[in-house]
Computed example of a mutant assay.
Amino acid sequence: MAVFTTVSDDDARELLTRYTLGELVALRGITAGIENTNYFLTTTQGEYVLTLFEVLTAEQLPFYIELMHHLADQGIPVPQPQTQVNGKRLTTLHDKPCAIVSRLSGGYEPEPGPAHCALAGETLARAHLAARTFGIRQPNLRGLSWWQQTIPQVLPFLGAQQAELIQTVLDEQTRFADSDIYKALPFGPAHCDLFRDNVLFDGTFEMPKMGGFIDFYFAGWDTWLFDVAVAVNDWCIDRNTGAFELAKLRAWLQSYSAVRPFTAEEKLAWPTILQAAALRFWVSRLFDYHLPRPAQTLKPHDPRHFERVLRERRQDAAHALP
């Protein structure tokens, strides 16, 4: 994520005294993203990622850290939070909560093909099933209540047609959340931000191998269908138009459903949940673009992209779940 807080080599050396991870070799800031401060941390024992949390509180963080720990212990390829000599996995640096996690191998694929989509879909389904035994509950903090609070803040920046669209979809989602169909959807810990740059691959483009899922700091309890919708709205689209590329979409959904079959209620809810996933990121990108926080390296995404995706989801046939 963006570097909001500067960490020096001396800071890192002091931090490492709380662990048994060896001595500092190198420290390098990661400039992509907009939410936390991240550094690649190399020690004499391995490769890690150091994260300082700029928004999430010390009270909220155990959910994310322990979820990753739980999934890693269940064999899901995710970063493993490192445990300090005091037995804890969270600490502080520059008066901010922080953690060190293992660095996964591989890199993200900016233009994934159907094989990448199939691997990502299968792994997400496995993660959902593994998360069923995770005991800490925390809502998706960028869910419906956050949309309801944030949309009034971004409305002054929108044109009349945009404002009508965003308010209409919010009203529809609010009503749908009270429906029997929504309440019957499978629900549990979800990544909620599984974009293509949050998945790492080894191997070749033609024969990729799963490296793992990263950046769980938007995770929360939500419908698993929302997690799927967030992913396919990024992985399986033409970036210029927001329209689905059907070979990728079929590969993703079929691989997911082979591990965790979709329910009848999920098949009914799919068109609406796809719009919910597009709305969530249109709102957050509007907020980050028009009401940004100060940062050393901050590159907010263009919010018009998810406006296009949302409009496309309202026009297309939603492509039924397998």
Rank of each mutant, 00 (worst) to 15 (best):
L165R: 03
E111C: 14
T223I: 06
Q275T: 10
Q74D: 04
T150V: 11
A163N: 10
D215R: 00
H301Q: 15
P62G: 02
L61R: 10
P62V: 05
G106C: 03
Q315L: 11
L52K: 06
H94G: 05
A120H: 00
G106S: 04
P81I: 04
V259W: 10
D9S: 09
N38Y: 06
Q84R: 11
L52N: 05
E164G: 06
F195Y: 15
P271G: 09
L286G: 02
R13I: 09
N36M: 04
W147I: 07
A177R: 11
R293M: 07
L16K: 05
F226P: 02
I181G: 01
K299C: 09
E206G: 08
D288M: 03
A269Y: 00
C192H: 09
E111G: 10
L119D: 01
D180A: 15
T92K: 11
Y289H: 12
T174E: 00
N86Y: 12
A118T: 00
G121K: 00
R18M: 08
P294V: 01
T204R: 07
A278L: 09
S284R: 10
F205T: 15
N198I: 07
T44W: 08
A131E: 09
A58L: 10
R280Y: 06
A127C: 15
R285Q: 03
F187S: 11
F205S: 12
E245I: 15
I166F: 07
G75E: 00
L56D: 00
H290E: 05
Q153F: 08
T44L: 02
E307T: 12
R13Y: 13
A318P: 00
I30G: 04
F213N: 08
V169A: 05
L141H: 13
D202A: 14
H301I: 13
T174Y: 01
T5C: 03
A177V: 07
G159F: 01
P294G: 02
S179K: 07
L56V: 14
S255V: 07
G220M: 00
E312R: 06
T241C: 13
L119K: 02
W252M: 11
H319Y: 13
H69F: 11
P79E: 08
V55N: 09
Y256A: 08
W224V: 15
V169C: 06
Q82T: 14
I100C: 08
E111H: 12
G113D: 02
Q60R: 09
T17N: 10
L200N: 05
W146S: 09
E47F: 07
A184G: 04
K96E: 06
L253A: 15
W221L: 04
P81V: 08
V199K: 03
T20L: 11
C192I: 07
S179M: 03
A32Q: 11
R175M: 12
L321N: 01
Q148I: 02
D302E: 14
H305G: 09
E172P: 05
L158T: 06
F157S: 12
F213M: 12
V154W: 07
Q60T: 11
L104N: 10
L24V: 01
A115H: 12
L15N: 05
R250H: 15
R175Y: 03
N240V: 13
E23H: 04
